[in-house]
Structure formats: structure tokens, C-alpha cells
């Protein structure tokens, strides 16, 4: 009876973690009840082997080295997109001329999978860190820009008029009304941008690169080191989930009054 009550209280937690544990156990035990043919075994690994590979790579410093390179590309690209995207979004939201001038391009660029520009960026900026920073930048720029812009457009006109009638100039309107109002939108844009930025890092490092976690995955795959591939994937997963949760926390604190929208990463 008591067990049932505990289950009822924490049902979502128990079922959620239970399912993941179950999957891991099934995955781990596949070799026990089924002998894979030799060809398949080459592509197969188990969670325990992945964990061992992770531990070994952590000890010999491989992960640290690649992680550092990826993190620099990620942070620099994302930082650059914030520096460009936020002011541009604010300006586009406030100035009708600028909006009409840029909106078609922004919409078009947002619909395009920006990953197609990678070969071009590699050609122009080489296989060093810059092509990665820039692919992260073009990936993360548009969600930030568009969300900021939408946030500014949704500002309550009455509030703007009130501040205006008390003699505020454009700069003060921006500071007092527009910016605080668009913060939730900006945070939502940041969440999308982080996803895109990580995508940019991963794919950017797949091609024409000699460092970074993406490179580690790609080269391990070519050498059939499947467990190393999964170590890389797991690190990226952990990073994304952690960052997404952190931003969500921030988002729900700042925008508890906004209706829940469908999940979109």
C-alpha cells in the first residue's frame, strides 16, 4: 500500500528514469542473448564500453584538448551573434525603414539551412578556427535577431506613448520600455541559438578540421571506433541538455506570464 502511494506521488519521475534505465539495460544485454554476425559486431558497442572509452579518453587528456577547441568556437560564434543580432533586432523592430529593407533577406536566410554555406566558409576562411566560428555565427544569428525583433514589435504601444508623452527620447524609450519587454523573447531566441550553435560546431568540425569534438567523432567513425563516436555524441548531448535546461529555467523565471508554447529547439 505504501509503495503504491510513493509510486503515485512520483509517477512521472519513476517512469521517466525507469524507461531510460530499461533502454540502457536492454542495449547492454544485447550481446548476451544474441551473437551478432562479425560484420555487425564491428558497428556495435554497449553503454559499458562507451563508459570505459570515456574514462580512458578523459585520463589521457584527449577529451579536454578537443573540448577546449570546440568550446572556443562555440563561445566565440555565439558571442559574435549576440553582439550583432541583438542591436540589429532592436533597430529592425523600431525602425520601419530598416525593417522593410532587411526583412525579406532575414526571412529567406532563416528558412535556408545555413549549413550549406560551410564549404564556402571553409574555402574563404580556411580550415582553422575562423570557419567554425563563422558557421556558428550564421547559425545562431537569425533565431536571436528574429526573436529580438518580434519581441520589440510586440511591445505595448500604450506604454511607449506614455513614456513619450513624459518627454522621453528614443534612447530612453528603448531603455525603459522596449528592452525589458523583449527580454523573454530574447531568452527564447537564445535557447534556439544555442541549439543552432552546437549544430554548427559539430558539423563545422566534421569537415576540414584537425581538432575539436566533431573531429574526434568523424575520425573515430572512419576508424570504426564506435565507442569513441558515442563518447563524443554523449558529450554534445550532455552539453545541449544542460544549456537548454539552464535557459529554460531562466525563461520560466522571467516569463511566467507567457502562455506555454510548443517545444521548439
Amino acid at each position: 500500500m505504501k509503495a503504491r502511494k510513493i509510486f503515485a506521488e512520483h509517477e512521472s519521475l519513476i517512469l521517466g528514469t525507469g524507461f531510460i534505465v530499461l533502454l540502457l539495460v536492454v542495449w547492454e544485454s544485447i550481446p548476451l542473448w544474441y551473437t551478432l554476425p562479425r560484420g555487425m559486431a564491428l558497428f556495435f558497442t554497449t553503454p559499458s564500453r562507451i563508459a570505459v572509452a570515456f574514462y580512458e579518453l578523459l585520463l589521457d587528456g584527449t577529451i579536454e584538448k578537443h573540448f577546449y577547441v570546440s568550446a572556443v568556437a562555440f563561445l566565440a560564434g555565439l558571442g559574435l551573434s549576440i553582439i550583432v543580432g541583438l542591436p540589429l533586432g532592436l533597430l529592425m523592430g523600431r525602425s520601419a525603414t530598416l525593417e522593410q529593407l532587411l526583412d525579406p533577406y532575414v526571412t529567406a536566410a532563416n528558412a535556408t539551412p545555413r549549413i550549406v554555406f560551410l564549404p564556402l566558409l571553409i574555402l574563404w576562411f580556411g580550415i582553422g578556427i575562423w570557419s567554425k566560428i563563422l558557421i556558428v555565427f550564421v547559425g545562431a544569428l537569425f533565431p536571436l535577431l528574429i526573436n529580438t525583433y518580434v519581441g520589440v514589435k510586440n511591445v505595448n504601444r500604450v506604454l511607449v506613448s506614455v513614456v513619450r508623452s513624459f518627454g522621453a527620447n528614443e534612447w530612453q524609450v528603448m531603455k525603459i520600455v522596449v528592452l525589458p519587454n523583449s527580454v523573454p523573447y530574447i531568452i527564447a531566441g537564445l535557447r534556439l541559438a544555442i541549439g543552432r550553435a552546437i549544430l554548427g560546431v559539430v558539423v563545422g568540425e566534421f569537415f576540414g578540421s584537425s581538432h575539436g569534438l566533431g573531429y574526434m567523432i568523424a575520425s573515430a567513425a572512419t576508424n570504426y571506433k564506435v565507442d569513441v563516436v558515442f563518447v563524443g555524441v554523449a558529450i554534445f548531448m550532455a552539453m545541449s541538455v544542460f544549456l537548454t535546461l539552464a535557459i529554460k529555467q531562466l525563461e520560466s523565471r522571467l516569463a511566467s506570464w507567457r502562455p506555454e508554447a510548443a517545444k521548439s529547439f
Binding site: 509517477e11 512521472s12 519513476i14 517512469l15 521517466g16 528514469t17 525507469g18 524507461f19 531510460i20 533502454l23 558497428f43 541549439g195 552546437i198 549544430l199 559539430v202 558539423v203 566534421f206 566533431g214 567523432i217 568523424a218 573515430a220 567513425a221 572512419t222 570504426y224 564506435v226 563516436v229 563524443g232 555524441v233 554534445f236 548531448m237 545541449s240 541538455v241 537548454t244 517545444k263 529547439f265
Partner: peptide, 28 residues
Amino acid sequence: KRVEYSLDPFLTALYASPLVALAPLFII
């Protein structure tokens, strides 16, 4: 409800993560 509870954390984690990282493995 029970299906939601079971699958949601797992699928959300997958959705949030860059699954494109699996591309080399898939191709191979």
C-alpha cells in the same frame, strides 16, 4: 499519461541534443 511520463524525458533529451553528431556513424 503513463506513456508521456515514460517517454518525455528520454525524447526531450534527444530532441535537445545535436543528433547530427551521429551522421558519420549512420553513413558508415
